[in-house]
Amino acid sequence: MNPVTTIAHALIALGSVVIGLFGAIGRLARFALTVLTRLVRPPYYPAQLAEQMLVIGYFSLPVVGLTALFTGSALAQQIYIGGSRFNASSTVPAVTVIGIVRELGPVLGGLMVAGRVASAMAAEIGTMRVTEQIDALTTLRTDPFRYLIGPRVVAAVLVMPVLVLASNALGVMGGWLLATQRLNFNSAAYLNTTAQYLKWDDVASSMVKAAVFGFFIALMGCYHGYHSSGGAAGVGRATTNAVVSAFILILLSNLIITVIVFGS
């Protein structure tokens, strides 16, 4: 093939990808804007909000808590082993609390909730879409954005900081348990050092991250569910896309917040 033609084809393919990417970002931004603008105007659905807070928050607590507990323990063990190489094994409580509260608590909590909640939202709303239940809502004088999507987004933003707070506490507890039971740390000294190194800024950044992750988790679940089509296969695709995109947005936004808050 003519080299000029090959380059032209490559540029066309690249252009299609770029246009597709910007198109997807634009559609998602418009969806998010619609959600936010509808949220501020009545009618409100407090019963839906309460139900979603229960589903997202309370029912996610076991999986988020166990993840934090195990990760905190493993982290303490690794820091102990690594620190022993240069006589710094006493840094276990300080590094564990900073690692858990700043990064692992919110990120692992966010990923676990995304796996559980974004998929469920996409599947539920996607099924409602393909069985015309969303159209039925509209014909019954009910705005799907206010009734279905708004309560899910608000609930996720509100409960994620609480979940992450619990996740942080359990993560630190996991480290403390391992350190005192296996590594012969003194319990009071461990907790004292932990409290000494835990700063308010760390907790605040953790809460901000959690709220942002909650927003992205619900947004991705609702967006992909709302736009699903093509029956059961379409709902399956929506579920997968919701989880993958929520994971990516959580990790990307975590990086951005970390750089902004701790970069300087």
Partner: peptide, 19 residues
């Protein structure tokens, strides 16, 4: 649009009842 839609009732093919 909401006022327009409020004049209609619809029976959907699959019923579209809320599960």
């Amino acid at each position: 649009l909401a006022a327009h839609q409020s004049r209609f009732g619809m029976l959907f093919q699959g019923g579209a009842l809320f599960d």
